[in-house]
Each structure stands twice: as structure tokens, then as C-alpha cells.
Design a protein around this nucleic acid. Structure first.
Length: 566
RNA sequence: UGACCCAUGGUGUAAUGGUAGCACUGCUGAUUUUGGUUCAGCCAGUUAAGGUUCGAAUCCUUAUGGGUCAACCA
């Protein structure tokens, strides 16, 4: 039986959970927990949003509460339905289902308008008709107090009339705005007569041409939370300074009592990538990547296409924790999470990425036999499969060296190696072309050494085991080797352009890889392990004629480290 | 030269006045028909100085460092 979260004293809580548990114990809001994920539909979601999604939906789940999906769509200039659909897809892919229908801040435009008029009638808001430059100039700076607008003391009647005419479309964009009467000397810039409404003659993706005035974020978010009965309104640190305004608007508009509480946490930063919408957009627009879902992008679409599982992403979100201090998570933690998940789930396959032909001289020319190999040693239920084996096979070019360092235990001239699932072979020579490149390796095999035969020869201890593919039955496939997009830990935080730190080797396309015949049964997005190499998934571009794999992540490679040191 | 927020190993995160722990990374070693997995172990931390206290990572003060705030963006 699951214990209630409140009884689980053993697990430590993050500061938001601690706060929520205190609220539940104090029976605040009747002990309800209701969160929301409030994206603006003006771009694609990235791994930072995934942290927020896991947090908000995860909290609701943990405390038997609800989590709304609410699109913060108050600016028709930037927003589009295209994004709404992709955001819903991403949230669902991560494995979460929102409470009821998707909600929209634009659903509350009528109520917000009523509230705006109330502010005017109460003498707490006024119509300003200065230019944005004038307003900015008189707003002061964080260290210099602002000055009051010359339009600040109009009568309520005049303000109401002007505001209604704004709504009626009598003015052009930017001609007039509605401002709240805050405090132009406040240390908090957001309290210096914040703008409530602006004129935008633009069709809205949901309300069409009903409105030509649109509320600002600050005049929308808290009220939306209030209307939805949100208890804990979780957002990132940069909204901390907005909190006084968030609370102030509600205090002006609604009866004392229930209030949603804004709580801020530190956004996710990941090493070796950029997260800002602007920079990601630039990568797409200038074709440094193939699109928003390029497998190198930190977007949820990119991560999905790369082959990450939702489970791995959720586990990652769990492990990075939630706190208020700025942080940079090492991307190797994310790689760890996906390896750990895929190790349990991914079927093993033999694929030779950089093939070189190997001929077994003492193996009959016409013979093909079938050998049995495990699908996944970590999952006995996954069973075994048969692979063809014959005189000519492909092995990895890296798995042979004419002059090898001491700890190299793959194939060398005169050396022995085991072909996984098949026989022990011994190298007898190499053939090279005119330019000195190896074109063929020759070996002899030990006929008694077949794997699983139980013979003494088959049980001999051999240091190296290679993956291989039967040449006659090999299927050529394309493999896209992805690596980190940037070769600097913090490409966005440098003096010069972040694009100077793009990793030139972030994508290598190899089109002559040789796969075992069973790859034919794979479908788009299937995830597998290429034995000894890494985890791969079948790309969207794949067709039955041309199978294409994306490398999700390499296997940990102890040898690569040793070799690099030599 | 203002207000607010933050400060624990390389990274991230716990310890809620009472033994500084966990994970990732890195490094050893064992096991292994994946140089994978698994297992065992190691390196490494409370920004500083005062104060309160029997006792401080935790509370207070100051300093230092980092972050946020001056869109008719969210």
C-alpha cells in the first residue's frame, strides 16, 4: 500500500513540497492542492519547461490535487495555434494529463475587462496617452524614482469613457494605455504605475476580432489563478519581483479570503547547450540545425526525436531537484538517466557502423549457419533470436589494429577474439589497397568453439568479444551520430557569439553501416542498443527501403578513456 | 550605486539548533561472451569574519560573491 505523502518522513522534501505540506496541515484552502502549467503559445517547449511540467503535474499527483494546462495567450502579436498543439503533444508525451479541458487566459478577457473598469471606477487606474518613450523616461530607473504621468489625475468618468473608446477601437495601437495607480517611487519597478491594457488591432487565435485591447501578463496571471482556484502558482525566479503586484491586483479586485500563492524556483540550465528561445530560434532560422525537433536541440521535440524516453526525462527532472539557487546541471546526468532506462528496455542488435570485411579462411564457402543470441541480457523475458553466420562477415574498423597498445584486447595480427554468439577466431593477415588502407582481414576459426555448444573450446576465456554482421545478409542502413551541440560548457555565457562554440562534430552521418537482418522489423521511434556502441532509435525520416537510426547516447566507454590517455 | 533573492565536494541536492548524507562526474578494483550492466571502494564540501548557544551548514550582524528588476513580452 502507498503511504500518504505526509507519512513519508524518510524522503526529504524540496522547499515547495515542505510549504505545501505545511499548508495541508494548516488546512489552508481546505487542504486542496491545485497547480497549473501556464505556457505562452509562442514557441516550442524545451527541457526547462519539462522541469516545470514535471514539477507542477508531479505535485498535483503527489498530493492528490489537480493541475491545469493554461495557455497564457494575452499577446496576439506573438502567439499562434501551431504552438498550442505542439505544447499539448509535448505534455502528453511526458506522460501527464491535465485537469479537464485545456484552459486559456483569453477565456477570462470578459472578467478581466470588468475588473479593469472597477479599477477605474475605484480611482485606481487611469488612461495614459504618452508615448512609450515618454513613459519609459518618466518611469525612472531602479535607483532613481519615477515621476507621475500628467494624465494620472483624470476623473474616473473621463478614464472610463476613454477606456471604453479604446475597447471600441477608436484609437490606434500605442495611442493610449490603461495604467494602474501604483507608486512611482517604489523600489520595485513593477509597482510604478504598471500597464494593465494596451491597444493591439490584431486577430487573436481564440477570440478572433472581438478585442482590440489586451491585458498585460501582470493584470492577467494572478486573476486567472484566482478564477481557476489555483492554490500554488509556481513560476521561475525572474517573476519574484512581480509577486507584490500579483498580490496587489487581487487585493484591489476580490474579497479577502482565498488567495493563490505565487512561489518561485530556479529555472533549469543545462551544460553544453543554450536554452533561450531567442538563441534556439536563431539556430533554427540560420539552419545550424534541421529544425525545432533536430535531435541536438534541447527542445522536448528534439529530445524525443533523439530517442529519449519520457521515463528518462521524468527521472531526470526528479534527480535535479527544485531549489532557489541558480544552477547548471551537467548534461551527463541526463545521459545517465536515459542509459539507465534504456539498459533495461532496449533490445540488443548487432550493427557495424564502420565496416571492414573479415574472411574466415577455413570456413566452408557455401555454408550459412544460424547462431542464437540474447535480445537483452538485462531482461530474460526478452528471449533470444537467430543470426546468420558465414565465411565473410563485417566487423568494426576500430576493432582491429595492426600495431596495438598493450591493453588493447580486440583483434590484432596473430591475436584471438570471440565473435559474440559465434566462434573464436584468430587473425592470419590483412589485405590493403594501393593507398595502404586495410580492405580485408583474414582469420581462421576454431570450429569447436561455437557459443553455447558447451564444448571446452567454447568456454575458453578470451579477453575480447566483437560484434559482427554476416556479409551476405547484412542490411545497409544510415546512422546519424549525434553529439553535444556545443563544445563549451556555457556557450551562452561568453563574451563572444554563442555560435562560435558550436561543435563541428555534433552530427556525423554514416550511410554505409551494416546491420543484422532483424532491423527490418523495427518501426519509427523504436529504441534499440547497438551492441558495444550505444542506444539508437529509428528516425522519422526512415523508410522500409532506407532505415535511418539516430544515436541517442553512446554506451559508457572505458576503453575510449584509456585510449585517449595513451 | 537602490530594492529583492541566493550561497553545502567539480556538478546538483539533503540535513528544518544535535554524527554533513545521497546522486552524477572522476579515479581504483572485482565480475562479465557488450571495454556495457552489476558489485566493492576512493577523491572531494558548509564563501568569510564576528555574535547568540552546552551545541550553528542551520539563528543574528557585517562583509564578499552570484542573480533579478528600468517591453505597450511572458
Amino acid at each position: 500500500m502507498d503511504k500518504s505523502p505526509l507519512e513519508e518522513k524518510t524522503a526529504s522534501l524540496n522547499f515547495i513540497e515542505a510549504l505545501i505540506e505545511k499548508d495541508i496541515q494548516n488546512h489552508k484552502n481546505g487542504g486542496r492542492v491545485h497547480t497549473r502549467f501556464p505556457p505562452e503559445p509562442n514557441g516550442y517547449l524545451h527541457i526547462g519547461h519539462a522541469k516545470s511540467i514535471c514539477l507542477n503535474f508531479g505535485l498535483a499527483k503527489k498530493y492528490n490535487g489537480k493541475c491545469n494546462l493554461r495557455f497564457d495567450d494575452t499577446n496576439p502579436v506573438k502567439e499562434d495555434v501551431e504552438y498550442v498543439d505542439s505544447i499539448m503533444e509535448d505534455v502528453r508525451w511526458l506522460g501527464f494529463e491535465w485537469n479537464g479541458e485545456p484552459l486559456y487566459a483569453s477565456d477570462y478577457f470578459d472578467q478581466l475587462y470588468v475588473w479593469a473598469e472597477k479599477m477605474i471606477v475605484d480611482g485606481k487606474a487611469y488612461v495614459d496617452e504618452q508615448t512609450s518613450e515618454e513613459i519609459a523616461a518618466q518611469k525612472g530607473t531602479p535607483t532613481v524614482p519615477g515621476k507621475e504621468s500628467p494624465f494620472r489625475n483624470r476623473t474616473s468618468q473621463e478614464n472610463l469613457d476613454l477606456f471604453r473608446r479604446m475597447k471600441a477601437g477608436e484609437f490606434n495601437d500605442g495611442e493610449k494605455i490603461l495604467r494602474a495607480k501604483g507608486d512611482m517611487a517604489s523600489d520595485n519597478m513593477h509597482m510604478r504605475d504598471p500597464i494593465m491594457y494596451r491597444i493591439i488591432h490584431k486577430e487573436h487565435h481564440r477570440t478572433g476580432d472581438k478585442w482590440c485591447i489586451y491585458p498585460m501578463y501582470d493584470f492577467t496571471h494572478g486573476q486567472s489563478d484566482y478564477l481557476e482556484g489555483i492554490t500554488h502558482s509556481i513560476c521561475t525566479l525572474e517573476f519574484e519581483v512581480h509577486r507584490p503586484l500579483y498580490n496587489w491586483y487581487l487585493d484591489q479586485l476580490v474579497e479577502p479570503g482565498y488567495r493563490p500563492q505565487q512561489i518561485e524556483f530556479a529555472r533549469l540550465n543545462l551544460s553544453y547547450t543554450v536554452m533561450s528561445k531567442r538563441k534556439l530560434l536563431e539556430l533554427v532560422q540560420k539552419n545550424y540545425v534541421s529544425g525545432w525537433d533536430d535531435p541536438r536541440m534541447p527542445t522536448i521535440g528534439g529530445i524525443r526525436r533523439r530517442g529519449y524516453t519520457p521515463e528518462a526525462v521524468r527521472d531526470f527532472a526528479d534527480r535535479i531537484g527544485v531549489a532557489k539557487r541558480d544552477n547548471v546541471i551537467d548534461v551527463s546526468l541526463m545521459e545517465f538517466c536515459v542509459r539507465e532506462d534504456l539498459n533495461k528496455k532496449a533490445a540488443r542488435l548487432m550493427v557495424v557502423i564502420d565496416p571492414v570485411k573479415l574472411v574466415i579462411e577455413n570456413y566452408p564457402a557455401e555454408k550459412t549457419e544460424w547462431v542464437e543470441v540474447e535480445n537483452n541480457p538485462e531482461d530474460p523475458a526478452s528471449g533470444n533470436r537467430m543470426m546468420p553466420f558465414s565465411r565473410e562477415i563485417f566487423i568494426e574498423r576500430d576493432d582491429f589494429m595492426e600495431e596495438a597498445p598493450k591493453k588493447y584486447f580486440r583483434l590484432t595480427p596473430g591475436g584471438e577474439v570471440r565473435l559474440k554468439g559465434a566462434y573464436i577466431i584468430k587473425c592470419t593477415g590483412v589485405k590493403k589497397n594501393a593507398s595502404g588502407n586495410i580492405i580485408e582481414i583474414t582469420c581462421i576459426y576454431e570450429p569447436e568453439s561455437r557459443s553455447g555448444s558447451g564444448t571446452e573450446a567454447s568456454q575458453r576465456k578470451i579477453k575480447g568479444t566483437l560484434h559482427w554482421v554476416d556479409a551476405k545478409n547484412a542490411l545497409p542502413v544510415e546512422v546519424r551520430l549525434y553529439d553535444r551541440l556545443f563544445n563549451h560548457e556555457d556557450p551562452g555565457g561568453q563574451e563572444d557569439d554563442f555560435k562560435n562554440y558550436l561543435n563541428p562534430d555534433s552530427l556525423k552521418i554514416l550511410s554505409n553501416c551494416m546491420a543484422e537482418p532483424s532491423v527490418k522489423t523495427l518501426k519509427i521511434q523504436d529504441r534499440v542498443q547497438f551492441q558495444r556502441q550505444g542506444y539508437f532509435c529509428v528516425d522519422y525520416d526512415s523508410t522500409p527501403e532506407k532505415i535511418i537510426f539516430n544515436r541517442t547516447v553512446t554506451l559508457k566507454d572505458t576503453w575510449a578513456k584509456v585510449a585517449a590517455k595513451e
